[in-house]
Amino acid sequence: MNTPGAPLELMLFESTAQGAKAVMPSGINRFIIDWEYIGKAERQAGFDTEIVPVGPFELSEVSRLPDALAWCRINRDGPQMPEEVELAVSSGARGIFLPMVTAPFEVERFLRAVDGRCQVGILVETSAALACVRSLAELPLDRVYFGLNDFAISRGGGSIFRAVLDGSVERAREAFDGRPFGFGGVTAVDGGTPVPCARLIEEMARLDCQFSFLRRSFRRDVLRVGVARLTDEVRAFWHKCQNRHASEIARDRHALELLLTGVCHAS
């Protein structure tokens, strides 16, 4: 459970030490260096996603920054996975995310490869993973993220926010109760489309999330308001959401359902 007043941890996809250093004065010190590429272009063809995989050099550069916590997203389970784990660990990863999980045995292989040398996380972003989420929750994971984009693709398309509306995200969160959990993405409180960031932050607080990834629109919004103001406003709004009364939480969830119903029907 969230400690009252605990901040929402923001994780930024970043591939350069220069980019990481630029945002660290604002309190962002958790970075994801993205190595995922296998099957991604084919899987996400026609969807509004971003594919910019990098490698060990970038991970090493970011991981050497004082106070930076560098995580690496490797490729999904496959023959290359143990070698990628070794590269990530030797390059200074403080944690590794395994994406596109479909079954517990994949995560068990991953855990054996890591062998306790850094933290481990998975991305629940397939319908198969949600179907076995209770079994996945029995494994010793440090962090779990629900990926809306690929989850929508695995279900044949439609709005990525359908998983929030129909309870899929909440079902995963309940399975991983007590574990650091995140979903969606964060940008400026007054930004985000078609679902405003503020509405997603309200839902993150309701579901007792501990972290989230920064949305691609974060970089655009930083140009508009500045990174210090953006993160300060996110933290202030998060604190406000954590201190809502039960009636306010129910009101905000109802408003979100109405919004998402329109978004999902339009997609």
Rank of each mutant, 00 (worst) to 15 (best):
M1V: 12
T3N: 09
P4Y: 07
P4G: 12
P7K: 12
L10N: 00
M11L: 09
L12E: 01
F13S: 01
F13Q: 00
T16Y: 04
Q18M: 05
Q18T: 12
G19L: 06
K21C: 13
M24F: 09
M24D: 07
P25Y: 10
G27V: 05
N29R: 08
F31I: 00
W35G: 00
E36W: 08
G39T: 09
Q44W: 11
A45L: 09
G46L: 14
E50L: 12
V52Y: 06
P53E: 04
V54H: 06
V54F: 04
G55V: 06
S60I: 00
D67R: 13
L69K: 07
A70R: 12
W71T: 00
R76V: 01
D77G: 06
E84R: 01
V85Y: 13
E86C: 10
L87P: 00
S90T: 11
R94V: 04
A103F: 08
P104V: 01
E108Y: 03
F110L: 07
V114I: 14
C118I: 00
Q119A: 15
V120P: 09
T126E: 03
T126I: 12
A128D: 15
V133A: 03
V133N: 04
S135P: 06
S135H: 07
L136Y: 08
E138Y: 03
L139P: 05
D142K: 03
G147W: 00
R155Q: 13
R162H: 10
V164I: 14
G167H: 03
S168R: 07
V169I: 15
E170T: 02
E174Q: 12
D177Q: 05
R179C: 04
R179T: 14
F181C: 08
G184C: 13
G191A: 10
G192R: 03
G192N: 01
A198C: 05
R199A: 15
A205M: 03
Q210C: 07
S212N: 05
S212W: 03
F213Q: 02
F213G: 01
V222P: 02
R224M: 09
R224A: 15
L230I: 01
V234D: 01
A236W: 07
H239N: 13
N243Q: 09
R244N: 09
A246L: 10
E248P: 14
I249D: 12
D252K: 03
D252N: 14
H254C: 11
L256W: 02
L256K: 03
L256F: 03
E257K: 09
E257S: 10
G262L: 10
G262H: 14
